[in-house]
Design a protein around this nucleic acid. Structure first.
Lengths: 216, 216
DNA sequence: CTTCTGAGTCGACACGGTGTCGATTACTTT
DNA sequence: AAAGTAATCGACACCGTGTCGACTCAGAAG
């Protein structure tokens, strides 16, 4: 039912030694996948493209991963930690003004999408055909929306944010959706620091006006 | 290069008579496709599912359509007109307050996604693997963003909307992205009039606060 | 009424990708 | 050096695609 990369750890950090050849080829498959995702979608990538890139035969692939999707799952996990970090930036802000912490969090998200756009795009796309990826994103979204909604309610209770409606949870939901789809689209275009900065400013502005009612 | 449903008209309105059998089967394929999209994604649908649903053999499919994607394109065109209508609602508002025209436009969009969610979702998904669909959406997005940005600038010039930054075009872009992805997600869930209404209110609120700075 | 034409249909085929299995080889461990 | 487990491979059966040439059949032309 559940299934993940089936070869549980494949840790790079952690255990000393025991770089047991298998880990090396798993790693090679992952690297090849990440490289290929820069030019093709996941289901345009054939298994033998993954394995020939790693110097092994096609059938050996199935020793390391259950499916193409399992590879994507493993790649996504490498990246998702970064997502959580950037999300945490808004929360637990000190006496810093909201504008700064929100801008920092959004800038971090945009940067992450710039860096791992292909993987994140593939992960998003796989969400509605693959149950493993659906669960993965459901978990990510749950944490994001929960903590954002909670933060909105705190700010409202403190009289800093404008009160509802809209309901805090749904507001959090649409704002996070907005960020995701804006980042998705951004990562499709050619890299441009100026446009990225403008995107960060635009998203920040929408967040500030929607939650606090002010443009800082 | 370009290619569409290859059998150009397949019009239902227009020509009297000449319901030339071929049009009937094309239509049957389209109907079957729309029905199947309610439960599967486009590339999970095999050609013989489409044709057996229409009572013909698999190979006959290729007489009527060039590919599965061409079927989706034909389906999308049936729906896109509705999109344009709802977009036009904000523009050319009379003396009506912005809150009302924006709410009406968003409500129409949400309703359209409720009605044709499966097709629209498939069309969105096909966007980044199929060039025909990419061009189709590029055209839709272009019209939407252009006219929205233009409207924002008009309202700013009139002193009704808060001035930039953010740049009107990019603001339009992220707001429209937000609407699309919110509708996409909404159409995945079970139909609920209450939730739909709440979504409309939330999106409207974000638009109003982002563009006009007020919740009306 | 026949004949011709082309729109519409079909079965057969070659191709390419998937996933599995049993056999084989390469490392470790004692 | 022997034993066992980790990793690899080729072969195979399966499934979906797209193409091709042959067939059918309705309606226009004679």
């Amino acid at each position: 039912m559940c299934c993940m990369s089936q070869r549980a750890p494949l840790s790079s950090a952690g255990s000393r030694r025991k770089r047991s050849k298998g880990d090396l080829t798993s790693q090679a498959i992952l690297d090849t996948a990440e490289r290929l995702l820069e030019t093709k979608s996941l289901d345009e990538i054939a298994v033998d493209e993954l394995t020939s890139g790693a110097g092994i035969s096609r059938s050996t692939f199935y020793f390391h991963f259950e499916s193409r999707e399992a590879v994507l799952y493993a790649l996504s996990e490498r990246v998702s930690e970064g997502l959580y970090e950037s999300a945490a930036m808004w929360l637990r802000r000190g006496s810093e003004p909201p504008a700064d912490s929100i801008r920092r969090a959004i800038a971090a998200t945009v940067a992450l999408w710039r860096q791992h756009g292909p993987v994140l795009r593939a992960a998003v796309r796989a969400r509605d055909t693959n149950s493993m990826m659906r669960d993965f994103w459901a978990d990510v979204a749950h944490r994001f929306i929960d903590s954002t909604a909670q933060q909105i309610e705190i700010e409202r209770a403190a009289g800093v944010a404008v009160p509802g409606p809209p309901n805090a949870r749904m507001l959090a939901n649409v704002l996070i959706s907005m960020n995701e789809s804006a980042c998705y689209n951004m990562s499709l275009g050619r890299k441009s620091a100026a446009r990225d900065r403008e995107l960060v400013e635009t998203l920040t502005s929408v967040w500030l006006r929607s939650v606090y009612g002010a443009s800082d």
